[in-house]
């Protein structure tokens, strides 16, 4: 199960529905660069519940046909230039949600049920633009109580970066248990990790509750600093100089191509 990053991204085919977490949960950036090198096409990205530089790069490199999330944000490096460009040129389809609705859709998938009701949303313009959401009446209320229902979101693959994995394919996600939901809602999960350990993570009771079992995991690649240049909650801080450089270069198509050439195509780690 411990494979190279190239073998890992081989499992992400054209047209896959690929779920990725928000920047605070650990982003598999090296795998993302490998995915761009591989030339993947027509991805349907689900940003859980938002996405950042990872989707910005994939969109800029022409790997994405649908972007489904509640925001694409580069934080203090906003606005995201290639995302903005893609919207202007209409090269991607947008499915705009709100953050808890992405979680609710995944929870429905996790439970194997068709939809999940969710409060709020009624009166927001995202409701009328969303292709699937509907309003139903709360069947348990005597008074009229409209509530939005969110259909299950079933990703083909979840992809993230985590601190530890063992040789049996278990992954330690610690306090980032939202990744557990993400993985359990997806058909399979691919993970890059900072460190491989020799003992089974589930044997240690203090670690066990933060372990994603190998049942859900389709592949693990050992990839130290795999979230660079983004902040990793259990590792390095973000590389601010690099992110500023990106912001500067990605303003133009040519600058973005230069960036890809230098940091994606010519810097293959293997």
């Amino acid at each position: 199960m411990n494979i190279s990053i190239e073998e890992l991204v081989k499992m992400i085919g054209d047209g896959a529905k690929l779920a990725v977490p928000a920047d605070y949960s650990g982003i598999a950036m090296e795998a993302t660069r490998a995915l761009i090198r591989k030339g993947v096409k027509d991805l349907h990205i689900v940003g859980v519940p938002t996405s950042g530089l990872q989707s910005e790069l994939l969109i800029g490199a022409g790997c994405v046909s649908t972007f489904e999330s509640s925001a694409l944000t580069l934080g203090e490096y906003n606005p995201a230039p290639r995302f903005s460009h893609a919207i202007k040129e209409k090269t991607i389809r947008l499915i705009d949600a709100t953050r808890p609705a992405i979680h609710a859709g995944l929870q429905a998938s996790q439970k194997g049920i068709p939809f999940m009701p969710l409060r709020g949303i009624i009166g927001s313009d995202i409701l009328q633009h969303h292709p699937e959401w509907q309003i139903m009446d709360n069947p348990f209320s005597e008074d009229k109580d409209p509530i939005v229902v969110i259909p299950a979101i079933k990703p083909d693959i979840a992809l993230f970066h985590a601190p530890l994995a063992d040789r049996d394919g278990n992954v330690w996600i610690g306090r980032r248990r939202e990744l557990m939901h993400l993985a359990q809602a997806s058909k399979t999960t691919l993970v890059t990790v900072e460190k491989m350990v020799d003992t089974n993570l589930l044997e240690d009771e203090t670690m066990a509750a933060g372990v994603l079992s190998s049942l859900y995991v389709g592949g693990i690649a050992h990839c130290p600093k795999g979230s660079w240049p983004l902040d990793f909650w259990y590792g390095d801080k973000e590389d601010g100089d690099h992110l500023r450089e990106y912001k500067e270069k990605a303003r133009t198509e040519e600058g973005f191509d230069e960036y890809l050439q230098e940091f994606v195509y010519e810097s293959a780690s293997s």
């Binding site: 509640s70 606005p79 903005s84």
Partner: peptide, 21 residues
């Protein structure tokens, strides 16, 4: 006009929910 906003901002985040609750 959505979806052809100029500029487009990041997105709605959790506002369509938290504002209600």
């Amino acid at each position: 006009a959505y979806p052809d906003n100029t500029p487009r901002w990041p997105g709605t985040f959790g506002s369509a929910y938290l504002y209600f609750l």
